[in-house]
Amino acid sequence: MCLAVPAQVLEIEGAIGRVSLSGVTREISMMLLPEAKVGDFVLVHAGFAMQLVSEKEAEETDALLAEMNGAPRTVGDLSGTVSAMEAAGAR
């Protein structure tokens, strides 16, 4: 469960902050993440900043890309799923 999205902190006043996601802003509570500063990216769930979002995401992806480099690409086509669609239509 638990829909949560990363957003950037625009301002903080006491326990209330305002965050932005693609230009959409909302007031949220900073009670659970008092260490957050203006400019930080934070994970927002149910109107609360829950955690700082670090740069690790990009690092993780780079590491995975390196790991996959040279791995074969043998199932790029959708043949399996298309036949499933046809089966669905036939039924």
């Binding site: 469960m1 638990c2 949560a4 509570s29 659970l32 769930h45 149910a46 109107g47 609360f48 829950m50």
Partner: peptide, 12 residues
């Protein structure tokens, strides 16, 4: 309702 993610928001 909710799991560990949501419970702290209710507590707060």
């Amino acid at each position: 309702v909710g799991f560990e993610t949501t419970a702290p928001t209710a507590a707060a």
